[in-house]
Design a binder for these strands. Structure first.
Lengths: 207, 207, 207, 207
DNA sequence: TATGAATGAGGGTTCATTCAT
DNA sequence: CATGAATGAACCCTCATTCAT
């Protein structure tokens, strides 16, 4: 009997996860295709194949599901780039950072929808709270990785957090315009300027 | 008779300008206080003291009035900074750019509402189209100023537009977080890092 | 448990039917009293005792509910006339058609509101599509009745459809003016002329 | 001086006529292209090149200008058909009526827009009031023509007005569906049936 | 848990009409 | 006569949210 209940509970649990994932996937699709403002909860629920009321069992409102999506998607991007980094044996921190930047940019080049979604919604505040904090279901532990990288680096920097902050902001805002509108340059032509700038920012912060 | 008509026309013209300004000012106030999405045209019209229908005599919709506001406000900021610059006798382009950055940052520090509005709405695309294009009613002719500055500069740069682009994007995104949330540092403490970064970016682009 | 759900579903279903009927009845009343153009969806919903939004659960817009009404009302008229016809044992097709015309005219004489509604809205195109096509919830199968009548008729006609078309158009347009404005004659005085005309049209089409 | 005033008045008079005609022509174009309900007074005034307020100097509202148009257009159709009739030397009234019907149908075949406008708007009531009454600016005096035709006809009819009424209604309603939708037959194929019907109706009314 | 019918506030937009010029 | 800016009522329609089932 206990087993039965447990099994039932397990089934229900799985079912819940399926419903929630359906809602998340649908929401992402609609948000990126037609914008958050033009997406209603009805839209999401209907396309996800659940009843309108069901949405409220999993999310508070439209912005709740959006925030959930942002951190999930952003984490995936960082995790992938970090994975690749592990396979390389790069010496200097500068090279590592540029490598990461390159790979993140490439992911966005290949998925403009993702770029649009993340760029419009990811701020430094959310980034710190959601990405830099390892939650239960996060594969990658970004803060630890970064801290370690700075510790093991032979070269030392004045204020690592500020430096990372400036690099991320520079990247995220320039990349958006370049990939989506090729303005002022297509991303592949912009890259050398960007990477030069990143390296020079880092140099200027060396101790 | 001609005089009468001219005078009448003048009166009507003035009246129209007053109505339009009232709408613009009210819209700015509401957009910045409660967000564009939470501001309805009814709100704007009512608070501006005109009928709802009157709004549509002057603007197509909410986004039309927003765009009008963005370029107007952004131009004011640049014009002020440029004014100050004229009073100084700075030699190098690097110094001039850092000076401008400093003054623009200062304006935003003192008017966080303006900062919020412009940061959320001003993209590079809009910037180029609206600011860098001298329209009829613009006091400051930014593109000309910049071009001149680069021409008279003894130091030459690889790709001036890309350089400006990167500097503006770096500035606008970092400043927002710093001024509004003092994250990762309050703006006054962030400034040295930022100015260093600007200078080093410029160095890296020197020919 | 299953029973409970079934009962519940039944209750909801009945409730929906009630709401839809309330909307249809109210719409008919308002359309005929004040015209379609002067009837708003708010009017209908309010008078029907449902919320404005509820209207849109059942109908796309004003014209959707109008079309629904037209075919429903027109079908009722034909069904009644046909019912009476079955009770008679008339020999010739001519007699049958005149009998039907007479009974339909009588229904309209007694219900001028219905006449106004149908005359203004029923065209041959709609008639063919909506009346001549037996739908799920239609009692009378008009096309079959007519076809049978022509098949069993000893007298044959050149083009039955064209003949029916002309008779219906002649009837529907003359009857409107006569019943509502007694112009050029009150309906009872017009009838002999009309029936004569119908018979003579039919004669002229005999093979 | 008197002359001057008269001349001025004449000029003003001409100017008024021009404005009114511009409004009428524009209204007709818009009514037929986009329907009366989708045509606003602003639309008409703007397209006619006059100010909105000017509309009200000439017409009470949308329906006022529509009625004006209906009778003008209908009269033109009848006048043309009658003109042609005068050139023929037809003996019997039957032939004359069929000839008129044919020419009116032809006009509508060639100008479906006109057909749509008149069919949707011309009722027997309006017809009698506006067409059968010779107004100041009417070229054709329809009632007189018809009366004369019946007087000079050797064959006599029971109730001429009722007969005309039935023929007109039969024509106007069948022709609409046939020309616009070729349903149940294209007009050229429908004509023989129609003319046969007209003749047989007339026969049935002979004394 | 899950449903989806019902709600009604509120949004955007249009437009006939007026009236000062 | 002619104008056209201003009005504000009225319209259509959407949608987040609730709740009985």
């Amino acid at each position: 009997m206990d087993d039965k209940i447990k099994k039932a509970a397990g089934k229900a649990e799985v079912n819940k996860r399926i419903k929630k994932d359906a809602l998340l996937n649908t929401a992402f699709e609609l948000f990126t295709n037609q914008g958050i403002n033009n997406t209603s909860i009805s839209n999401i629920a209907e396309k996800a194949g659940v009843a309108k009321g069901t949405f409220y069992l999993y999310f508070k409102d439209k912005y709740d599901i959006r925030n959930f999506l942002i951190s999930r998607k952003a984490q995936e991007v960082f995790a992938k780039a970090d994975d690749e980094l592990q396979n390389m044996k790069l010496e200097s921190l500068e090279d590592k950072i540029v490598f990461l930047a390159d790979h993140i940019i490439n992911q966005f080049s290949e998925d403009r929808i993702l770029l649009g979604f993340i760029s419009k919604n990811l701020s430094w505040g959310i980034f710190k709270k959601q990405i830099m904090t390892s939650s239960e279901d996060t594969a990658v532990n970004l803060p630890q990785i970064i801290e370690e990288a700075f510790l093991t680096s032979r070269t030392k920097y004045r204020n690592p957090e500020v430096m990372i902050f400036m690099i991320i902001e520079l990247l995220s805002s320039t990349v958006y315009s370049s990939i989506l509108y090729e303005d002022p340059l297509p991303i592949e032509e912009l890259k050398p300027y960007l990477f030069d700038s990143i390296r020079s920012i880092m140099h200027s912060q060396q101790i």
